[in-house]
Computed example of a mutant assay.
Amino acid sequence: MTKVVNYISEAFVELKSNVTWPEWSEVQRLTIIVAIFSILFALATWGVDVVFAKVLGGFFNLLKKA
């Protein structure tokens, strides 16, 4: 258990002393960019899903009629 505690405390020291953190304005800007691309990707995935559902529905309707 002491190894785990030691590892976590060393990780915090590493994060405090050796990591270069971005400015808050850059964090906000990049967060907005990631949110926009996530929404666009979700909409694109939804659109492809709707198109495939309609294509498959039409295909199976053709099979029923034949």
Score class of each variant (00 low, 15 high):
Tyr7Gly: 00
Val27Trp: 00
Lys65Gln: 07
Leu56Ile: 13
Tyr7Asn: 02
Val55Glu: 08
Arg29Asp: 07
Lys65Val: 15
Ser17Trp: 06
Glu23Leu: 14
Lys16Gln: 14
Lys54Phe: 14
Phe41Ile: 15
Ile33Gly: 01
Asn18Ser: 11
Val48Leu: 15
Val50Arg: 15
Glu10Ala: 01
Pro22Ser: 00
Thr31Val: 02
Thr31Ser: 14
Ala66Trp: 03
Gly47Cys: 07
Ile36Ala: 10
Glu26Gln: 14
Gln28Asp: 07
Ser38Cys: 13
Asn18Met: 02
Ala66Met: 12
Thr45Val: 09
Lys64Val: 15
Ala66Asn: 03
Lys3Tyr: 07
Ile8Ser: 06
Tyr7Lys: 04
Phe52Lys: 09
Trp24Cys: 06
Ile32Gln: 02
Thr20Asn: 04
Leu43Val: 06
Gly57Pro: 00
Lys65Trp: 04
Lys3Ile: 06
Val50Glu: 13
Val19Pro: 04
Arg29Glu: 12
Ile32Phe: 06
Met1Asp: 12
Thr31Gly: 13
Glu14Ala: 08
Ser9Trp: 04
Asp49Ala: 14
Tyr7Arg: 05
Asp49Gln: 02
Gln28Met: 05
Pro22Asp: 00
Asn61Trp: 05
Lys16Asn: 13
Leu15Glu: 03
Asp49Leu: 08
Ser9Asp: 04
Leu62Phe: 10
Gly58Lys: 00
Leu15Asn: 05
Ala44Phe: 03
Arg29Val: 03
Phe12Ile: 13
Pro22Thr: 01
Leu30Lys: 14
Glu14Met: 10
Val50Gln: 15
Ile39Ser: 04
Met1Ala: 14
Ala53Met: 14
Asn6Ser: 13
Pro22Glu: 00
Val51Phe: 15
Ser17Thr: 12
Ala66Glu: 04
Ile8Val: 15
Asn18Val: 05
Lys65Asp: 02
Phe41Gly: 15
Val50Ser: 12
Trp46Glu: 12
Ser25Trp: 03
Asn18Lys: 03
